[in-house]
Every structure is written in C-alpha cells, then in structure tokens.
Simulated scan of single mutants.
Amino acid sequence: MNNEDPVLVHTEGRIRHITLNRPRAINALTHTMVLRIDEALAAAERDDSVTAVLLSGAGERGLCAGGDIRAIYEDARAGGSTSVDFWRDEYRLNARIARFPKPYVALMDGIVMGGGVGVSAHGSIRIVTERSRVAMPETGIGFVPDVGGTHLLASAPGELGTHLALTGDAVGAGDALLCGLADHFVPSEHLVDLSRDVAGCTTSAEIVATVRRYATAPPVGALAAHRDWIDACYAADSVEEIVDRLQNCGVPAAKETAETILVKSPTALKVTLASVRGARRLGSLEAVLDQEFRVSCAAFTRPDLVEGVRAQIIDKDRNPQWSPARLAQVSSADVAGFFEPLGDRELGLARDASATG
C-alpha cells in the first residue's frame, strides 16, 4: 500500500478498510478513485475472510467534498466526454454500494457532499458525528443532485428532501438522521475506538451491536421545528409557486429560504424539482440513477454548469450569470429535454438489475 495512492485499502481483523486519500482536496473523487473503490468492493465481496467494509476519509476536514469539479469544468469547456465516462462508473458504484451483501460502514465525519454522499449514504451502516455537514449543493453550480441523491432526498419525510435539493443547504448530524441520510450518531472522538472494536467482529450482528454500543443521541437538528412551513410551501407544483409560498407564508426563515433559492441556477432548480418528483415515482435506486445519468449528460452540455463552477470554484466571484437568468424563462420543454432517452448511451442499471433478478 502506497500512502500516496488516492484510495488506501487494507485489512484489519475481518474488516476491509477503504480510505479516501486526497486530504488537501477534502478527498474529492476522481475517476481513478471510483474505479479503485469498485475494485476493492468486488474483492471484499469475494473474500470469505472479510466480514464488512469500512469507508473513511483521510485528514481532518471530511469524508469527501464531492466529485472533482475542476476536472468536470475543464472537460465541459473543452467539449470533452471524460466526465460522462466518470459518471457512468460512479453511478454504477453507487448502485453496488447499495446492494453490497456485507455490512458497509461509512464514517460520514466532517464534510460529506455530492459524490461523498454517493459513496456513503447508500451504505447499510451510516455514521455521522458532531462535525458532519451533509449536503447535495449542486443547484449552486448549475448542476442537479446526482449519485442517487434524488432517490435519498425523495425518501425523506414530507418535503424535507425537496427543501435540501433546491437550497443545497448542508445539515448536521441530527437533521441527517431525520432525513434518512444516516443511521447513527457517534462522537468523533470515539471513531478510532469504534473502528478498532469493529475489526474484531466476526458476524454482521456483532458489527451492528458494536456500532449501537458507541452510538448516542445526536445534537438537536434545525429542520424538525420548520416542518410546517417546509411541507406546506414545497408541496407546490412548480419552483415559482414554491418561492411564492415561501415569500408570503409569514415566516421569516421561509422568506430567507426563498432568497437562497433565487440565487441558484433557474434551469437547475426546475430540473431538480422534476428529478426529485420523478425519483418518488420511479422507486428503485437503479431506475433513479438511470434518470440522473440522462440529466447529468444533458447538464454537461448546458452553459450553467461551466458558469456555476467558474463563479463558485474558479474565479470565486460568487456572481454567476445564469442562462436563462429567470425562472419564468425556463420552459417545460427546456426541462423535459434533460430527461430525453440516450439510446445506446443509456446507463441501463434498472435493465441490468431486472435481468439478474
């Protein structure tokens, strides 16, 4: 094992450890990392001496800040296609994690955003800490929640998932648990001891019992107290009506939320709402990932992705010039174009799952 590798894999006891190892980039995912994780999971699945997999991130800042946005930006500007290849393999990895036949323990400590959610929140044992900040912030860069994120958010209670999808807000441990993005709260100071004790487990039941022994009540989240206006406002059929309800419901926090939404990409907002609503209808993760792949491929060719990354990541002027600039200028036909079938370029996860039973 070379400590310079972007993904470190080693076995301790009966646990296969997978460590994301780009700490200076908050372990942002590259295509190489996705393939390496997939390879490690395939090996762990075949190895009868491995009881479970444990995913963690190197450094103090977080598990994973998402995909390598700069690489996607450069690829889109150049008219390339490597990002599409990356997403194809990344979404297949997300599906593998969700169906992994052994316990998949994800330590969601620190920043867990975008692609970081994809490699953790589909796992079977998802642990957050007091340092966790979990988010799908794609609308702020002219993109749409992916990596199975719309599946997760569509399953959140009431309209909490719609709220998080449109705003891109990050949540702490309590709200991550409330929204179904995590399973257990463990103080960060106990993660080393938990990892050590899990290594001695020989069965899935022992692993679950060990995690529960370390788990405690999480800090109180913020979302539960706002459920009334969130559920009422986000139940609207369009982004325009959601914003109108937020602005006029008489709750200061709701009005502030409307202001947050209105600085996001109008196109990304409308496509995101359609994606979350579509995910509810589709049901299975594989079908949702297929939908997200179509949307991501379409977004890759639209101007808002490049402009959003430029404004937020490259130039950092925080002043994106969205095209079109207003919600009213994004038509139903514009939104529908993001969901058009891709023919022989389809991801095909739902088809493959059906074929294998």
Rank of each mutant, 00 (worst) to 15 (best):
I72L: 06
A236R: 05
G148R: 08
D85C: 07
I26S: 03
E340K: 09
A311M: 01
A350T: 06
T162A: 13
H226D: 14
M1V: 09
L327M: 04
N27P: 07
I207R: 13
D193R: 11
L29S: 04
F86V: 00
V105H: 11
H151A: 05
L262E: 14
V119F: 11
G337S: 04
A325L: 08
D315L: 04
G278N: 09
A98S: 05
Q312L: 14
G200V: 07
G283T: 10
P219G: 12
A279M: 13
V144I: 09
V198L: 12
A353Q: 10
K316E: 15
P145A: 09
E45R: 13
A215S: 10
L164P: 03
T210G: 02
V306E: 10
P101Q: 00
M33T: 00
G115Q: 05
A325R: 01
T272W: 02
Y214Q: 01
W87G: 01
M113H: 14
H226R: 14
V288S: 08
R46S: 10
P341V: 00
D317C: 00
F293Q: 00
L327C: 09
A135P: 10
V208L: 06
A232W: 11
E307A: 09
A325I: 03
N27D: 09
D146Q: 11
A106R: 14
V186S: 02
G62A: 04
A236C: 03
L285P: 07
D244I: 03
A222T: 09
N3W: 15
R126H: 03
L178K: 08
N2R: 12
M33Q: 02
G66E: 06
E74R: 01
S354C: 12
F293L: 06
V335A: 04
P252L: 00
G59Y: 06
L327Q: 10
F143T: 11
R281T: 08
S354W: 06
T301R: 14
E138D: 13
Q291T: 06
T139Y: 01
V220D: 09
V147N: 14
L160R: 08
G13P: 01
V276K: 07
